[in-house]
Amino acid sequence: MARMHTRRRGSSDSDKPVADEPPEWSDVDADAIEERVVELAEQGHSPSEIGMKLRDEGVQGTPIPDVKLATDKKVTEILEDHDAEPDVPEDLRNLMDRAVRLRDHMEENPTDYQNKRALQNAEAKIRRLVDYYRGDEMPVDFTYSYDVAVDILEE
């Protein structure tokens, strides 16, 4: 897929190996995995951080290479089932964090035109994502602004 804000083509990503079942050495119970996912979410970890922690630390000392293969649910689905999902989708939160950091940088460096363009691109992407999520994960009357982003990120 082409890049959104440049005229260059994107680089290809690596694909996960095709697997229908978890490896034999990872024989942790699905309920234990779900409990650990909810526990990590309550500690304030994002879904991607939860996946990395399960991959690195595991459950009961056994690493979990792929939560979906072990439980037949994605991490976000597990969080939805246990009412532990984050208020703002992770991709939108990460973009808001980037925009806030860029805005703070622009206040200190007003002639940095390259980062001014990066801020415009990030905010445009945020507005598109808000339109996508509006009504489902975000309130219908939600509109993006710098102050709203700062408030969301402080929570």
Rank of each mutant, 00 (worst) to 15 (best):
E24Q: 08
E39R: 10
W25A: 04
S46C: 03
D15W: 09
E35Y: 02
P22Y: 02
V18C: 04
G61L: 07
P47Q: 01
S14I: 10
A41S: 14
M1Y: 13
D27L: 02
M1R: 12
M4I: 13
P17G: 08
G51I: 00
D56S: 11
S46E: 13
A32Y: 00
S26C: 13
A41Q: 08
P17I: 13
K16P: 06
P23V: 06
K53W: 03
E35M: 07
S48W: 02
R36E: 15
P22I: 05
V59G: 05
Q60K: 14
W25H: 10
R36K: 14
S14E: 11
V18L: 13
E57P: 00
W25K: 04
E21Y: 08
D15H: 12
T62V: 15
S26R: 03
G61S: 08
D56N: 13
S46K: 11
D15I: 12
G44L: 06
E34R: 15
R7G: 15
E49D: 09
E35F: 03
I33W: 06
S46R: 10
V28T: 15
R7C: 04
E57A: 08
P22L: 06
E21S: 09
P22E: 05
A2G: 01
R3F: 05
I50Q: 00
E39S: 14
M1T: 14
S14V: 11
P23G: 05
P22M: 05
I33D: 05
P47W: 01
T62L: 02
H5V: 10
T6Q: 09
T62P: 01
G44Y: 04
V37W: 04
L54Q: 04
E24D: 08
G10N: 14
R55W: 14
E57V: 14
R36C: 07
D20W: 09
A30T: 06
E57K: 13
V37E: 07
M52P: 00
P22F: 01
R55A: 11
G44E: 01
D27E: 07
V59S: 01
S11H: 11
S26E: 14
L54W: 00
P23N: 01
R8Q: 14
M4G: 03
A41Y: 06
E42T: 07
L54Y: 04
D29Y: 03
I50K: 01
A41E: 06
S26W: 03
I33C: 07
M1I: 11
D56T: 12
D27A: 11
P22V: 07
G61V: 09
K16C: 07
V18M: 08
G44R: 07
L54E: 03
W25E: 10
D29T: 10
M4R: 15
